[in-house]
Simulated assay, not measured.
Amino acid sequence: MGLSILVINPNSSKKVTDNFAQILEKPDGVSFDFYTAPEAAPAEITGSETSIASEKVVLPDLKEKGLIDGYDGFLVCCYSDHPLIHSLAKLTKGHVMGIMQATLLYALSDPSITKSVIITSVSEWEPLLDKGITDFVGASSFPINKFQRTKALNTSVLSLSDPAEFEKIRAVVDSHLNGTYRDDKIDCVLLGCAGMAGLDDQLSRHFPGVKFIDSVKIGVDLLTALVRFKRYQA
């Protein structure tokens, strides 16, 4: 029996959702549906306030459309500890995962990685994502032995996938890796925004020896594995 995954874009920008559909490859035996938040949700999620506003629109809409019990897994595609992850998990028997959590699991589970850094869209996210890392690993302080502190591109979420923006993105990534953090031996970059989906291959070509982890791609793969494991235990 196949698995069904709902890929949730909790902002109202269909452009972001369309990009997911273009770059994702379905694992064998898995079907995807893609959801974009209604127009009442923020077009771009830039921090705590817009995350809360997003959840207040999306959760009732998922209920009204009968989607909560219709899938084996739900991937919440906002790179943060988005409140929808927790509220949705209380209402569904399906497995719920956020894309930030997926990248952190990957970074901590790969023994070949020395140190990781999140590179995100705008600077408002930097302290929030650093707190997210600390909370996720259950530490009392930032786990500097495994992660360096988050850095931003200072590019709008809605522009991150535009080809015209790539040279700017590449230059900022270079300044972080080979400037600010040149002595940190960073060999893994977690692409810390759903709008960066698909940039992993492009950036890898410019920075040999560094793994660039697409949060939506790894989110789908880890979520699928966890849903399958849950079936084994049933």
Rank of each mutant, 00 (worst) to 15 (best):
V189R: 11
P83N: 09
N11P: 01
S80G: 15
D28N: 12
L67A: 09
S51T: 00
L6K: 00
D162G: 03
T150Y: 10
D110A: 13
R205L: 14
L67G: 04
Y71L: 03
Q148M: 14
D214C: 08
D214Y: 05
V117G: 07
V7L: 13
Y106N: 08
S51E: 12
F34S: 00
T46G: 09
L203C: 01
L177Q: 11
S51P: 00
L190F: 03
V96F: 06
E25C: 06
K217R: 12
L223H: 05
P27V: 02
G2H: 14
A37L: 06
T114D: 11
L104I: 15
M97H: 03
L108F: 11
L226M: 12
T50M: 03
G192A: 01
V16M: 15
S175Y: 06
A152L: 01
E165Q: 07
D162H: 13
G2S: 14
V227C: 15
F74I: 13
V58F: 04
I119F: 08
I144R: 08
L153E: 10
N178Y: 11
G219P: 02
T134F: 13
P143A: 02
L6T: 04
I119Y: 01
L3K: 12
T50L: 09
V189E: 10
S215Y: 00
R170W: 11
S159T: 15
V117M: 14
T50H: 02
E64L: 06
K146D: 04
L160I: 14
D130L: 10
Q22E: 14
K211S: 13
K56M: 09
D110C: 10
G209K: 06
A171M: 10
L129R: 06
S116C: 02
A102G: 08
D61F: 03
K131V: 06
I113S: 07
V76Y: 11
Y232E: 15
A41D: 00
F74N: 04
K65G: 09
G219K: 03
G195R: 00
L104T: 07
R231T: 12
